[in-house]
Amino acid sequence: MFKSALSSVLGERSELGFKPRNKVLVIFIDGLGYQNLKAAAGHAPFLAGAASKGQVLHAAFPSTTSVNISSFATGLRPGGHGIIGHVVRDRYFQRTLNLLNGWTEETDPLQWQPNQTISEAALEKGVVTNVISATEYRTTGFTKATMRGVLFHEADEIADRFEMAKRLLESQERSINYLYIQELDQLGHVKGWESDSWRALLEQLNGILERFTQVIPKDAGIVITADHGMVDTNDQKRVELDELLRPRGVEFVGGDTRSMYLYLKPEVDKESLLQELETYQQFSAYDANALVEAGLYGELGPQAKERLPDLVLLAKGNNTLYHSDFSKPRSYRMIAHHGGLSSQELQIPLIRFNI
């Protein structure tokens, strides 16, 4: 999508059919799945109405933030950019990494995500890339992996981000612009997307966006989208896998609560373990190579090959998957989750104005 925004500014044909514009702003609302928005349409009539006239796209698998922002930022599928899950084990580097917020000084973003970003391609073409986001994201490893060569504009309040975006769109400079809203996803994890507080925040965003789209310059286009949807769960839907996995040679558990990655010790008979796991009703079990063959990751590059797990467990229904040796304590308290293959997690809106 960001690739199509750049094509629009360059006056080139884009994959999404965007019209030529001097400036394009992509508003990225983390966690605003199409089905979530449709279900809460009474709280967001402007957004829901615009979404019904737009397109429904599908997030990349796994339906999690690090994967889909990386695809947005590079124009590549997960197998191409190598950010293939929330938490992975890399066999080449011999380390594990939370690819969203677990970066340290020892994890070089250029090694973990070496592909050219859309922002770098824009820079080569003389087009400015502006990122409008919260201060905490300015210097993270994930930002360095995905948004290289950008001008970063800090704004911790949502309303301030839109004020900044308005000023940037009023500039005469050709630009692609990325405005990130993380608050809806964060609130969903804590309260659930069906909660009153989540819907109140959506209502607030609906009003801000309705006013904002009425004052954009004629040479600017606006796109609103998301990285994934969310499903609400409860404690009864939690599937504890400690006793099942500990004696079976699982070296590391990665992924997330809806798509668990299993990395096995070399001596483990993968096929036998897979056959056993396939008998459980709370999740589906797959050889990761089968998911690759099915096209879920796209063509694998060298980085993705080193991080691919041996087996993948996909939660069924609204279940969530945990292993206490690897799952963070805060994940046990989360209500809304994502990462799986359900349509509620995968379907995202593509809303456009003047483009």
Rank of each mutant, 00 (worst) to 15 (best):
K166N: 07
E120F: 06
Q204Y: 15
G42V: 15
E299R: 14
V88S: 06
V239D: 08
T225Q: 09
R95V: 05
L187I: 14
I355P: 01
S284N: 11
A315R: 11
A226W: 11
H337G: 06
N234R: 06
D256R: 11
K19N: 12
F142G: 05
A59P: 10
S197E: 15
L245K: 09
D108G: 03
A134F: 00
K125G: 09
P266A: 08
A315I: 07
K316G: 07
K53R: 15
Q204F: 14
R174H: 01
Y263Q: 00
G221C: 13
S284M: 10
V88R: 05
H81L: 10
A226Q: 00
D156R: 01
L16H: 08
T117D: 07
R174W: 03
V24P: 06
F353P: 09
L110Y: 00
T135C: 08
T117G: 05
Q303T: 10
R77W: 15
F46Q: 00
V292R: 12
G102W: 15
A159E: 15
V239H: 02
K265D: 02
L97N: 14
V231E: 09
A315F: 08
Q113W: 09
Y178K: 12
S327Y: 04
L205R: 09
E240M: 01
F2R: 01
L277G: 05
T279Q: 14
L311F: 13
E271H: 08
L341C: 01
G317F: 11
I335Q: 13
S63T: 03
E12R: 15
R138A: 01
R333H: 14
S342V: 04
V128A: 05
G75I: 13
T65S: 06
Q204A: 13
S324P: 10
L37E: 04
T320L: 10
Q204C: 09
Y332C: 13
R89A: 10
V67N: 01
V88E: 06
A226K: 04
L291E: 07
T213D: 00
A59I: 00
V9E: 06
R333M: 13
Y263I: 08
D242K: 04
A165K: 00
E210Q: 13
R167Q: 11
G42T: 14
T143E: 05
R167C: 03
A44V: 03
G85V: 01
G11R: 14
Q182M: 13
L350F: 13
G339F: 11
M230Y: 05
A155S: 04
D160Q: 13
K237G: 09
E120Y: 10
E163W: 04
A59Q: 06
T233F: 05
D185M: 02
K237L: 05
I27D: 06
E243Q: 02
N318T: 12
R330P: 02
K328R: 14
P114C: 02
Q347C: 01
